[in-house]
Design a protein around this nucleic acid. Structure first.
Length: 260
DNA sequence: ATGGTCGTTTGACGA
């Protein structure tokens, strides 16, 4: 199975790139974040023509997540699915694709440590852990992927001195991510690549991509059975390149290939 | 030089 996650920063702005990417890589499953689209605007027919079923959970101007699959798409759930207190934002979609329970996540950014949005980020990560406890079994094939807006360790950012007192690296959010991992998930990219300097996001400003100033915040958190079957994990950093009239997202896709 | 660049419900705000 080839499964990928990609924050597209507007599916409208990125649709032609997503179509080309699907044709080129033919992933079995593609998780998208930041579609910035209402459900009734989602181009389901475009993806159907390429052989993909899709489940979109969107709201319009902000956020929005989707799961595309050409190996089946069952038991879709939008949000935490706990019927308690709906998430005000469209940030989480679930589906079972080819026997794998997939969660597509767009974790809140947090904005700054003293912002209410940061508390929302921490509670969102806590709630994701609770949702896993209640709806999933770590003994199964599970992939929890997406834009986590957390760099797991210091080697996942280009210069720690630029992130003192900032979100994405703070201890509380890293602890929340670690608790999600402790449920029974492996950061499978890091398992395959231990070196520093490998990122999935680069700021649009200041030529950050060309200066290799990025962060690794787009993660494939996979259960042990999936990790054991994983042969290859890569960032498609070529997708971060492109001309002004066909601009890239500020995130690159992250792909994993499993055998067996 | 105290900014930079994208995206969106056109323009202030989020990332």
């Amino acid at each position: 199975m080839l499964l990928a996650t990609w924050n597209v920063n507007s599916l409208n702005a990125r649709l032609s790139r997503v179509e080309r990417w699907l044709e080129r890589f033919r992933p079995d499953v593609l998780c998208l974040q930041e579609t910035k689209m209402a459900d009734d605007a989602f181009p389901a027919l475009t993806f159907e023509a390429l052989g993909y079923e899709a489940f979109h959970h969107g709201e319009g101007r902000w956020n929005g997540v989707a799961i595309l699959s050409r190996v089946g798409l069952d038991d879709p759930v939008a949000g935490f699915g706990d019927n308690i207190d709906p998430d005000p934002d469209a940030r989480l979609a679930w589906a079972t694709c080819g026997g794998v329970r997939v969660a597509c996540c767009y974790v809140p950014n947090g904005r700054s440590l003293d912002n209410d949005h940061y508390q929302y980020k921490l509670s969102w990560l806590d709630r994701l852990r609770t949702s896993l406890d209640q709806s999933c079994d770590p003994a199964d094939d599970v992939v929890v992927c997406g834009d986590f807006n957390v760099a797991p360790t210091d080697i996942d950012v280009y210069d720690t001195s630029c992130f003192v007192g900032a979100t994405h690296v703070s201890a509380p959010e890293r602890e929340r991510l670690a608790r999600i991992a402790q449920w029974g998930l492996v950061d499978v990219f890091r398992e395959h690549h231990q070196e520093a300097g490998l990122y999935s996001w680069w700021d649009y400003r200041g030529g950050a991509f060309h200066k290799r100033q990025g962060m690794r915040i787009d993660l494939l958190m996979v259960s042990n059975s999936m990790a054991a079957a994983t042969e290859t994990v890569v960032v498609d950093r070529n997708e971060r390149k492109g001309p002004k009239d066909d601009p890239p997202s500020d995130h690159a896709p992250v792909l994993m290939v499993t055998g067996g």
